[in-house]
Computed example of a mutant assay.
Amino acid sequence: MDNTLKFADSHEWVKDNGDGTVTIGISQHAQEMLGDVVFVDLPEVEAELDAGESFSLVESVKAASDIYAPITGEVIEVNEELEDSPELINEEPYEGGWIVKVKMSDAAELDNLKSAEEYANSIEEE
């Protein structure tokens, strides 16, 4: 697991791109719980995200799961590859399976998220 990633309690990961933007996806643990992903409902570019609010839906053979924004900001890019290859979320949750890139409204929100180690400890306790 990439130690530069931050995690929300709702199993989204955030990578700080170092330029005021972040990349967001769902964790290895989340995709394992979902099973084989068959569809991802992507938000529109320029959509405004509010931390804690649902912005996407990931459907698997088992369930549909809301994806929540770990931070507040504006969507600047969506991973269009997921439209044809939603299984990238299963195969590469931290690489090719990213969902959106967001321009942060407040970088201080990153401090509210868990480190990779804290997140790993929290899912062991479940």
Rank of each mutant, 00 (worst) to 15 (best):
E44I: 01
S65C: 12
W13S: 12
F39V: 01
Q31V: 15
L88W: 03
E80Q: 09
A116C: 04
P70W: 01
A51N: 02
V14E: 04
A116N: 09
D16C: 04
K62P: 03
E77Y: 00
L42P: 04
E46L: 09
G96Q: 07
P86A: 13
D36N: 07
V100M: 07
E91T: 14
N3K: 14
K15T: 01
G73A: 09
D19E: 11
I89P: 11
V37A: 06
Y119G: 05
E59T: 06
S115L: 00
G25L: 02
I123H: 03
D84F: 00
D50N: 14
L49G: 07
Y94I: 00
V22S: 01
G20C: 02
V75L: 08
F7H: 14
E109H: 05
L42W: 06
E12A: 12
S115G: 05
E126I: 12
E12Q: 14
V75P: 02
S54D: 11
W98H: 04
N17T: 04
D111I: 02
A107N: 06
F7V: 03
K62T: 11
E91H: 08
T4L: 05
I123D: 02
S56C: 14
E12G: 06
A107Q: 11
H11G: 06
V40H: 08
S27T: 14
E12W: 08
E125D: 12
T72Q: 09
S56R: 09
V78I: 15
I71V: 15
N121Q: 15
E91L: 13
F7N: 01
S10Q: 09
E53D: 14
E53V: 12
A8K: 00
A47M: 09
A51R: 14
E44F: 02
E74N: 09
V100P: 08
A64S: 15
A64P: 05
V102K: 08
I71H: 03
N112R: 10
V37T: 05
E59Q: 11
S105Y: 00
D2V: 01
